[in-house]
């Protein structure tokens, strides 16, 4: 598949497209935690790194098949998510965000000091298993799963917690379990994305998974429009491709990226698709067209 595509696309852009897919999976996980459940998380990169290192080490040392490694990495990250989700019983709002930020930094420092992860030198020699097809099959799978989840009993409970936790508890929702559940599922996505990332770059460095990466993921979903899947997808796509598009400006690239973030927030404070319901938009545009054709002349 990749060899076939390489005839048409420059391998560098192929890599960017794969990275986009990987970020999409991770961002959708964060979307479930922050966008749907309303739990602020500044530590999503930690789950990404747990998944990445987990999958890579299993592949190197135990020689497990790739998909099994991805699954195991995802499960490890989900375990970490449960571990972080429990403190969220006591903390709320910004305090939860700060605690997850602390967790993210601790994980990074631990990976930097462990022998098995290669320490600060990083982990090299991971086989290249990720290809565009696998990534995008998983992206579609994630989108469908999150979409179905959001419109299930579980998802409605999560939205209720986001809107008003006390009211939700009064309605009989055990908010603790739902919050931990959201963290587990969201981190699972991040873990799978991490596994893909590890097997794409073939090299992992703890410095890549600092809080900066966490904020990047948060920016993806907020810029697109917090709480909507299409928003998360749009935000991720724009912000992942923006540094490539801005490449013409060479060293001013990151400066423009920063300015772009400020400008986008100022002009669309609720995100690009904030408050826009795509389904309703499409449906209403169809309906108005129907009305145009069925309304009798002069009526």
């Amino acid at each position: 598949m990749d060899d076939f595509l390489k005839q048409f696309i420059n391998p560098y852009y192929l890599q960017v497209l794969m990275l986009l897919g990987i970020y999409l999976i991770a961002a959708l996980g964060l979307h479930l935690i922050t966008g749907v459940t309303g739990q602020l998380s500044f530590g999503h990169a930690a789950f990404l790194s747990v998944g990445a290192y987990g999958a890579a080490l299993l592949n190197i040392h135990l020689d497990l098949p790739f998909l099994l490694c991805l699954l195991a990495g995802g499960l490890l990250a989900a375990l970490a998510g449960v571990f972080v989700g429990f403190p969220s019983m006591r903390l709320s709002g910004d305090y939860l965000g700060i605690a997850t930020l602390g967790f993210c930094e601790i994980i990074r420092v631990v990976f930097m000091n462990l022998e098995i992860t290669g320490g600060a030198r990083g982990l090299a020699g991971i086989p290249r298993e990720t290809n565009l097809l696998t990534v995008y099959i998983l992206v579609i799978l994630t989108i469908v799963t999150i979409y179905r989840l959001q419109n299930s009993r579980f998802g409605r409970a999560l939205v209720a917690i986001r809107e008003d936790e006390i009211a939700a508890e009064c309605m009989g929702i055990r908010s603790i379990w739902y919050k931990v559940g959201a963290f587990a599922i969201g981190s699972f996505c991040a873990g799978v994305a991490g596994g893909l990332y590890a097997h794409m770059l073939q090299y992992l460095n703890p410095a890549d998974f600092g809080f900066v990466r966490s904020f990047e993921l948060l920016c993806f979903i907020v810029l697109g429009g917090l709480g909507s899947i299409s928003g998360a997808i749009l935000g991720t796509t724009i912000l992942t491709l923006a540094p490539e598009m801005l490449r013409f400006s060479a060293e001013y690239r990151m400066m423009m990226y920063g300015t772009l973030m400020v400008a986008m927030m100022i002009f669309r404070p609720r995100g690009l698709l904030g408050g826009v319901d795509l389904r309703r938009l499409i449906r209403s545009s169809f309906r108005s067209r129907d009305r145009d054709t069925t309304t009798p002349a002069g009526g």
Partner: peptide
């Protein structure tokens, strides 16, 4: 929304 100035501050920081 609460997250908007936060994202904006990250943008300023990168800048």
């Amino acid at each position: 929304i609460r997250l908007a100035p936060l994202i904006s501050s990250i943008g300023v920081s990168i800048f």
